[in-house]
């Protein structure tokens, strides 16, 4: 297992790049890399040369997250002003604009089958689930508040929801909060199931293993990556090595590795068998806000691809093999 740099684009955006995801390949085109930035734009890039395929404007304040529909036809981007814009990837036509005030918008993810879009709702301590055919809000999964609020808790921002992830079977959603707890929900019954404990600092990124629906990876500001048995509620492993916040985690499609991006300016590849860092990429010069593996399928892209985006305005592409 190893990563090899293929291409980097300096100044890919005019400002810090904060979000990235791959838009899966369709019959007519290969997979595209979708990035969002503080410069209020969303850009599409063709692999492997990272040629700019399109620039979407229309957001105000920075773009904090992007998500791609599994079909590869539509994608969503969200900005600090709490609007979600759903658009057609090929035409950049706006399909819907979503907002659920006063809930903000942080991380988003489409259901594995594409029927729903889950959005981390920030201070509302909830996940908003939207139907992707009608673009109506179908449910709000709220983290239950502690029955007896402590007097020292002067605000409830501790359960501020930052990150969200669908299990590969689409039955459960996990979300990470500012206080480090991870909450797991049963989507069908719209019911909170349990917390996963272990972090005490914000959990900024979550991802399920693509091969094992029980295994959940979390990235936290405490510089650790945790591996949970999301159903058994237990912490399986804790991986340390980053020198600062872990901002993003993604699992490789083969399920053998995970990649992480951190404030310590590195991208790391972790071997899940050894549960240790295999490789550290230090090509970025600032915080690495997102790492994302290219989903398999489509033509034009050989082998595995990993992309990372950084506060230094650059984006990088690696070969994963």
């Amino acid at each position: 297992m190893k990563l090899a740099g293929i291409k980097s684009v300096e100044g890919a955006h005019d400002e810090s790049v904060w979000a990235a995801t791959w838009v899966p390949a369709t019959s007519s085109r290969p997979a595209l890399l979708l990035t969002g930035s503080l410069d209020e734009t969303v850009k599409l890039w063709k692999s492997d040369d990272l040629n700019l395929a399109g620039t979407n404007t229309g957001h105000c304040l920075g773009v904090v997250s992007v998500a791609a529909h599994p079909s590869g036809i539509i994608a969503a981007s969200a900005s600090l002003d709490s609007f979600v814009r759903v658009f057609d990837v090929n035409t950049n036509a706006t399909i819907a604009t979503l907002e659920a005030p006063p809930s903000e918008v942080w991380q988003m993810q489409f259901h594995p089958k594409g029927t729903k879009l889950a959005v981390a709702g920030g201070g509302s301590a909830s996940i908003k689930v939207w139907d992707t055919s009608t673009w109506k809000l179908t449910s709000t999964l709220t983290i239950p508040r502690p029955e007896v609020p402590k007097p020292s808790d002067k605000n409830t921002s501790k359960k501020f929801v930052l990150s969200v992830a669908w299990s590969p079977d689409g039955r459960t959603i996990a979300c990470g909060s500012m206080d480090g707890t991870i909450s797991v929900f049963d989507v069908a019954r719209e019911k909170f199931m349990h917390h996963l404990e272990g972090h005490s600092m914000p959990v900024r990124s979550l991802v399920y293993s693509p091969v094992d629906p029980r295994v959940l990876f979390s990235a936290s500001d405490d510089a650790h990556i945790h591996m949970y048995d999301a159903e058994g509620k237990s912490l399986v492993s804790s991986m340390s090595g980053h020198a600062s916040w872990v901002l993003s985690v993604d699992a490789s499609p083969d399920g053998n590795a995970i990649a992480t991006g951190s404030s310590d300016r590195t991208v790391r590849l972790w071997d899940l068998k050894m549960r240790a860092a295999l490789q550290t990429m230090s090509n970025h010069t600032d915080q690495v806000w997102a790492v994302t593996f290219c989903p398999p399928g489509g033509t034009g892209v050989r082998g595995g691809r990993l992309a990372s985006v950084c506060d230094d305005k650059s984006i990088s592409l690696y070969d994963y093999s």
Binding site: E15, L38, L61, L80, G122
Partner: peptide, 13 residues
């Protein structure tokens, strides 16, 4: 403004 937006991004709550 940009600096504040960055700060919000770091400390959303």
């Amino acid at each position: 403004k940009k600096t504040l937006l960055r700060a919000i991004h770091l400390a959303p709550s």
